[in-house]
Design a protein around this nucleic acid. Structure first.
Lengths: 337, 337
DNA sequence: ATGAAAGCGCTAACAA
DNA sequence: TTGTTAGCGCTTTCAT
């Protein structure tokens, strides 16, 4: 079932069929009708491989995320899909399994498949860099949320430093004078900048931060639970535990419950990302809301812009300002201390 | 950067380059080395569009799920990726947004892209059927978890009836003599069969099931919350609330907490799927564990089998027996009643 | 407005 | 073992 079959049935040339079906050039209305009828009768549908080979476009955007099981990334994916909307482009989604090697393979594969553009949230700040930069050389590429060191590609995300300022101001206002930070190993830009923001603002507010209150593991519930065990094993708990994402925070609050540590009375806990499950914790998490819709639409816009002009114009770094969502894992009102 | 460039540099023909790089036919070791060096020096990488057009294989499997934000499906995706493992095949993931129209478009697009096979969990038992069957006519296709009416394609999932028997036996043993069911509208096979299993076993155990205790909405936390509001508004609560998935169950237990209804003392609650967040609820959910790894590997196996033989052999329906994971949203021991 | 024909990058017959 | 060549399905000049 090829364009040639349709051409024969409609009594025209293959070129005319192509033009009639894609509307790339003017074709007589009468001819268009004939062609469409023939195509319908034959149940013809275009072979996008043939089209891609010839036109060098695939109408496909590749997207690579560190982990599809992290709800923050799935919501990012949904937002990107939505932003792509009626553009006629499809999303080719890849999971890097938090492994730069897998990620590199995925990126190479996307390039080999001639995707029209790539949206990537790199797994690792350093180890992901070579593959990301190589891919960026081949096709328009936008980094999302996270980015690799020494990059000059487009990037869209939130201002982590500003976010941490919001978080610390909030727990400080509620009486916290000491704080711990639970994040992932410093291997990606998110944690790095969140930790930097944490330390910066903690200092500005003269809050106590002990070295052994900086716990770095991974973005998971299990690590949050472990981290709390470590903190609880020490002589005293900090007034607040600031987590680098909601999964960690959910683990922390869960472990608190298991140990009968009261949140927020004994210790305040904050998350980051505002995933759907954040309000489900006990207590519901105070967290940083990332403007996922806006991030996605900006990314798609940048990609479209990059595909349009051949000349690589100045690339953009867009940092959006997040907002704090206050729930019940932090105290509402100031407290004597 | 094409195969011709490499051929020129290595001083051989394009055919030899192809053979040397893919290993499809024997090539002298010396020649292979020459070709590989030339390819490396030029930074050549295969253009998979060209390869696909010629060989009619894309080394790509398409997967369509109802909703990527449902953790059950993301874990299914992860399992499939893992099962695909070193096979050299990539997964092209699509989200149907729980909309048969979107789903149909995705399926058509996958077929147009010549994927080697499709794994789909259909959104709707009836409305998804035409598109699924059409896709199945074009390429090997396996249905996962859910299936469409009147289908004769391969299918892998769990035995929902057996699962419901486990659930009801368990809550009954703990003293429940009446039960409600909260599911989604009866538009897909999962809910349909889970409800059927529920009713069947409730009758066998002579448990009370009122008509207005059958609540059908959607697979979401929000619907679980709503459903509990409706149940709580009635004169009395059932002894047990059986939910068609964990999201719903998490919503139900959350609403219970809000209303100070004690789980499991006032009412027992069960989920289905055993998503990671199930243990995070308050209390942690008793739920049905789906053998996701096994489901995925069977699906991949069926797909490979279907691709191998041209002759469509008898298709398989594989129903795995799930197991019950008992946590704290149900009572451990029998109770006076 | 339409047709003829070239060619995108690759692989697989067929020859040598 | 290697080379020559045809052609996968499509779009796009270049003619007409």
């Amino acid at each position: 079932m090829t364009i040639a079959d349709v051409a024969e049935r409609a009594g025209v040339s293959t070129a005319t069929v192509s033009r009639a079906l894609t509307g790339s050039r003017p074709v007589a209305a009468e001819t268009v009708r004939k062609v469409q009828r023939a195509a319908a009768e034959l149940g013809y549908s275009v072979n996008s491989i043939g089209r891609a080979l010839r036109s060098n476009r695939t109408d496909t955007i590749g997207m690579v995320v560190p982990s599809i099981s992290n709800p923050f990334f799935t919501s990012l994916v949904e937002n990107v899909e939505h932003a792509l909307g009626g553009s006629g482009k499809q999303l080719f989604l890849c999971d890097a399994r938090s492994d730069p090697a897998v990620e590199a393979e995925r990126l190479r594969s996307l390039v080999a498949r001639n995707v029209d553009g790539i949206i990537v949230s790199p797994t690792h700040g350093v180890d992901s860099a070579p593959a990301v930069l190589e891919a960026a050389r081949a096709v328009p590429l936008v980094q999302l949320d996270r980015y690799v060191d020494g990059t000059s590609t487009d990037w869209v995300g939130v201002d982590d430093i500003a976010a941490m300022r919001l978080v610390l101001d909030h727990v400080h206002a509620a009486g916290a004078r000491s704080a711990a930070f639970v994040g992932s190993l410093l291997t990606n830009s998110s944690t790095e900048r969140r930790l930097a923001g944490f330390q910066q603002q903690a200092e500005a507010l003269r809050m106590t931060v002990r070295d052994d209150w900086l716990l770095l593991g991974e973005y998971s519930i299990a690590w949050g639970e472990q981290a709390l065990e470590r903190l609880a094993g020490r002589e005293r708990l900090p007034d607040a535990i600031v987590c680098a994402d909601d999964l960690i925070a959910l683990g922390v609050t869960r472990a608190c419950r298991a140990r009968a540590i009261k949140v927020p009375d004994d210790v305040q806990v904050t998350g980051y990302d505002n995933i759907e499950f954040a309000r489900l914790g006990e207590p519901p998490l105070t967290t940083v809301d990332q403007p996922g819709k806006k991030i996605a639409s900006e990314a798609v816009r940048l990609l479209a812009a990059a595909s349009g002009t051949e000349a690589a114009e100045a690339s953009a770094h867009i940092a959006l300002i997040p907002k704090l969502v206050v729930r019940h894992s932090t105290r509402e009102l100031p407290d004597r201390h």
